[in-house]
Design a protein around this nucleic acid. Structure first.
Length: 573
RNA sequence: CGGGCAGUAGCGCAGGGGCUAGCGCGUCUGGUUCGGGACCAGAAAGUCGGAGGUUCAAAUCCUCUCUGCCCGACCA
C-alpha cells in the first residue's frame, strides 16, 4: 500500500478526549475515527489489524470444531419475548417497530436467535453436540461509552454457542473454549487472566471472564497471590470472622447526630465490627411474561467494618435492576435514614442479611427513630431476612481458599464464557430425544470475545512515547518501507519485489522529509522498517530496523525479500 | 439518569458586547532544502453547534436545545 493513497492521515496532536495512550495513538495513527459517542469507523489500518485478530479467532474456533454462521443484527421481538429478555433488559437494548407494527430489536447478543436456529436443527441426540460461532456486529446502547474502543455502543464480537445433550458435554466444550481463548490471546500477544465472574443477565451458573489487567480497566479483580484464587469483585468471596458471644436483649440508646458508622463508633467508643450497617436500594422486579414492573425496597445489611457489594446484593434480592433509594421511599417502609435498620420495617421489604451480620451477635443497629440506635441486636430475634454473602472483597482481606492476603487490581474484560444450562432451551423449546425416546432440553453454553476491545487493549499494552508497536501478528502491515533516495524507480522496484514476495508492505512514497516519514512510521508502529538511504543504497544495501529496538541492521538489496521473510518468520515466533 | 466541563478553519487552541474573528500545526502554489516532525514567499479555508431573546450593536449577555468529554449511577 502506498501511503500517498491511504484513506487516513496521521495527526500530530491528540484529538480532545483521548484519555488513554492506546486510544490516543489509534486516533493519531489513523486506525479509527469516531462518528458519535461509542460509535467508530475502522479506517484501513485499523480494519487490517481487526481482520488479523479475527483470522486468529476464526482459526482457533474452527480448531475446536465450531462452524461459522452469521445471524442477523435485527431480531424479531418475539423470540426475545419467549425468554423474557424483551422486557427484562433495560434501555440498553434498542427496540423499534417495523412497518407492520411488529416489535423488533437490535440484538445485543444472540442466545435467542441461535436457540431459535438450534431448535429447528436439533431433534435427536444423534445431532449433538453442535457448536457454532459468528463474528458480527452488536449494538448495546450503553449509557456511558468511554475510553475509545474499550467501552463502545456498536462493536464486533465473536460469539459462539454450544448445544449438548448433557452437562458432561457442556463441560467439555466449555473447557475447549477456556483453552482456545488463552491460545487466542497468546497469539495476539495480550496477557490475560481468567477469573470467576458473575453471569449477570445471561443466566446460568459457571462462567469465566478473561481480564486484561490494566489501570484503565473498569472491573476490579480480586486475586490471591498465594493460591491463585481469582474472581471478579462482583462475586469474589473472602473469609469472614465472627464474634460468637451469647446473645443479649436489645436496648435503646440515644445517639444524637450519629448518622454514619464512623460517627456512631466514635460516639459509643466501639469498633465498626460491632455494628450493622444498612444500605437501601430500590429493586425493580419485572414479570417475564407480561413485562409488568414492580418496585420494592431492598435493605442490605452488612457488618459495619465491611462494604456492600451491590452486585451480590442484587443477585441475592433476585431483582432485575437496582438503584439507590430516595429518602421518601425509605421512610415509606417505616425506616428512618441515618438511623435505619430492618428492625420493624414494613412487610414487603426485601431484607438481605450478610452472613457476617447473621453470625455475629449483639450488634449496634439503627432504631428507626431519629437520634437512636439499638444495642445488642440479633438476627432471627429482632428481625428476619434472607442470609447471603453480600459483602465486598477488599484489598488485604483473607483468601477464602487458603487464608492468604487478597489483592485487588483493575482489569478490562476481553472475553467471557458461560455455561448457560437450559435457561434458553427450556424457555424457547429447544429439545431433543435421547436413546430412550425421552424429550430433554438441550444444554447450552455461550462464549464471547470483543474484537475491537481486544485491539484497544493490545494498543494499551504495546506503545511507547512515539506511538504504537503492535506485534507482527496483529499489526496492519508487516513492513514499513521508507525511501529517502532520489531514484524513485529503484525504490518502486524494491517495493514491487517485496509485494510480489507476498510481504505486506506500507510504502511511504509521499513527498515528505525524512523526519516526517520516520515520525509517522513510529506512530503507526509497523514492526519492521526498511529505510532506503543514499549511503547504504550506493553500497547495494538498505537499513532494517525493528520498531521495538534501536538496533539498525544493513541488509543486502540483492536478496532483500528472502532476508525480510526470514526476519518475519523469526518475529512471528 | 445525577454532577462537572466543553463546542470558534481539517486538528489543537486564543478572543468573552463595538469596526475586517485570530494564533500554532496541517492544506494549496512557487522556490530553496533533502537521514528524525525543514526554510522563504504567497494563498485558500470559519453558518463562532442550533433556535429564540436582550441590545443601536452578540462569537461575547440571557433562555431553551443538540452534541461531545470527564466523574458517578449503569455495563450481556
Amino acid at each position: 500500500m502506498r501511503m500517498s493513497q491511504l484513506f487516513s492521515k496521521t495527526l500530530r496532536e491528540a484529538p480532545n478526549g483521548a484519555d488513554c495512550k492506546g486510544y490516543e495513538y489509534l486516533l493519531r495513527a489513523g486506525f479509527i475515527q469516531q462518528n458519535a459517542a461509542g460509535i467508530f469507523s475502522l479506517l484501513p489500518l485499523g480494519f487490517r489489524s481487526v481482520k488479523k485478530i479475527e483470522a486468529i479467532v476464526r482459526q482457533e474456533m474452527e480448531g475446536i470444531g465450531a462452524q461459522e454462521i452469521l445471524m442477523p443484527v435485527v431480531n424479531p421481538g418475539d423470540i426475545w419475548k419467549e425468554t423474557g429478555r424483551f422486557y427484562s433488559i433495560d434501555r440498553e437494548m434498542t427496540r423499534f417497530k417495523d412497518r407492520k407494527d411488529s416489535d423488533m430489536c437490535l440484538a445485543m447478543t444472540h442466545e435467542e436467535c441461535c436457540t431459535d436456529l438450534g431448535r429447528s436443527v436439533i431433534d435427536s441426540y444423534k445431532r449433538l453436540p453442535l457448536l457454532v460461532f459468528q463474528i458480527q456486529t452488536k449494538w448495546r446502547d450503553d449509557p456511558r461509552p468511554r475510553a475509545g474502543l474499550i467501552r463502545v455502543r456498536e462493536f464486533t464480537m465473536k460469539d459462539s454457542y454450544s448445544f449438548d445433550r448433557d452437562q458432561e458435554g457442556l463441560e467439555k466444550v466449555y473447557k475447549a473454549h477456556y483453552d482456545a481463548y488463552f491460545r487466542i490471546y497468546k497469539r495476539c500477544g495480550l496477557p490475560v487472566v481468567a477469573v470467576g465472574s458473575d453471569s449477570g443477565m445471561m443466566g446460568g451458573k459457571v462462567s469465566h471472564e478473561y481480564m486484561y489487567l490494566s489501570p484503565i480497566g473498569e472491573d476490579t479483580i480480586i486475586t490471591c497471590p498465594d493460591c491463585g484464587y481469582t474472581a471478579n469483585r462482583q462475586v469474589a468471596r473472602f473469609k469472614k470472622t465472627y464474634n460468637a458471644e451469647a446473645p443479649k436483649e436489645k436496648s435503646l440508646v440515644e445517639t444524637p447526630n450519629c448518622k454514619t458508622i464512623e460517627e456512631l463508633c466514635a460516639f459509643l467508643k466501639i469498633d465498626a465490627s460491632k455494628t450493622a450497617k444498612a444500605l437501601f436500594m430500590v429493586g425493580t422486579y419485572i414479570n417475564d411474561k407480561t413485562g409488568d414492573e414492580e418496585d420494592k425496597l431492598i435493605v442490605g445489611l452488612v457488618r459495619g467494618d465491611m462494604e456492600i457489594e451491590e452486585n451480590k446484593l442484587q443477585n441475592a434480592a433476585r431483582c432485575n435492576g437496582m438503584r439507590p433509594a430516595h429518602p421518601e421511599e425509605i421512610e415509606a417502609a417505616g425506616i428512618v435514614p441515618g438511623f435505619g435498620s430492618p428492625i420493624g420495617c414494613k412487610a414487603g421489604t426485601v431484607v438481605i442479611v450478610d452472613d457476617s451480620v447473621a453470625n455475629s451477635n449483639n450488634l449496634v443497629a439503627g432504631a428507626n427513630k431519629e437520634g437512636y440506635h439499638y444495642l445488642n441486636t440479633n438476627y432471627g430475634t429482632d428481625y428476619s431476612g434472607t442470609v447471603a454473602d453480600i459483602a465486598s472483597a477488599q484489598d488485604g482481606y483473607v483468601c477464602p481458599e487458603c487464608g492468604g492476603k487478597l489483592r485487588s487490581s483493575k482489569g478490562v474484560e476481553v472475553g467471557n464464557i458461560f455455561q448457560l444450562g437450559t435457561r434458553y432451551s427450556e424457555s424457547m423449546g429447544c429439545y431433543f430425544q435421547d436413546e430412550n425416546g425421552q424429550r430433554k432440553p438441550v444444554i447450552m453454553g455461550s462464549y464471547g470475545i470483543g474484537i475491537g476491545r481486544l485491539l484497544a487493549c493490545l494498543c494499551e499494552e504495546y506503545n511507547d512515547e512515539k506511538g504504537l508497536k503492535l506485534p507482527v501478528q496483529v499489526a496492519p502491515y508487516q513492513v514499513h518501507f521508507i525511501s529517502l533516495i532520489k531514484d524513485t524507480e529503484a525504490a518502486e522496484k524494491i517495493y514491487k519485489e517485496l509485494e510480489d514476495a507476498g510481504i505486506e508492505v506500507l510504502y511511504d512514497d509521499r513527498k515528505e522529509t525524512a523526519g516526517v516519514k520516520f515520525a509517522d512510521a513510529d506512530l503507526i508502529g509497523i514492526p519492521v522498517r526498511i529505510t532506503l538511504g543514499n549511503r547504504s543504497f550506493a553500497e547495494g544495501k538498505c537499513e532494517v530496523k525493528l520498531r521495538d529496538s534501536d538496533q539498525v541492521m544493513a541488509y543486502d538489496l540483492s536478496d532483500i525479500t528472502g532476508e525480510i521473510k526470514a526476519l518475519l518468520a523469526k518475529l512471528a515466533k
